[in-house]
């Protein structure tokens, strides 16, 4: 369900971009997806393939997903580490006072269009 919501917003944003830039056809859509954004990439692609048929400008589009690795910052020792490997606890000083620096985003990097 979460993927469907994001796909709907993506389609809307691209429709608006197409209208603004007077585009008739969008090809490749490069999306940067954070490693811990909670987006299931296979579900996302399925949802996209279903919805793109409803938007004329998107019907031949192809979604390319690039992953942004998740990085956590430790407030105690000021170090950073891989979120997925170590989770909430800092592997250096074992503090739990840690915050996600990046890896939660979903950004449209670029599109191919004419």
């Amino acid at each position: 369900m979460h993927e469907m919501g994001i796909v709907l917003h993506l389609a809307k944003t691209l429709d608006e971009t197409a209208a603004q830039e007077k585009l008739t056809r969008i090809g490749k859509v490069v999306l940067q997806v954070g490693e811990v954004s909670g987006i299931m990439t296979d579900l996302f692609t399925d949802a996209w393939d279903y919805f793109k048929g409803r938007h004329p400008v998107l019907k031949d589009s192809e979604l390319v997903l690039e992953q942004i690795p998740a990085v956590t910052y430790c407030d105690n020792c000021k170090g950073t580490y891989e979120t997925v490997k170590y989770g909430k606890e800092c592997p250096f000083c074992h503090s739990g006072e840690t915050w996600l620096l990046k890896g939660n985003e979903c950004i449209i990097k670029e599109i191919e269009a004419e």
Partner: peptide, 15 residues
């Protein structure tokens, strides 16, 4: 086809 760099959040239209 040309490449358009957007760098926009997916939810830009919602914002």
């Amino acid at each position: 086809m040309k490449i358009i760099e957007l760098g926009a959040s997916v939810t830009a239209s919602n914002d």
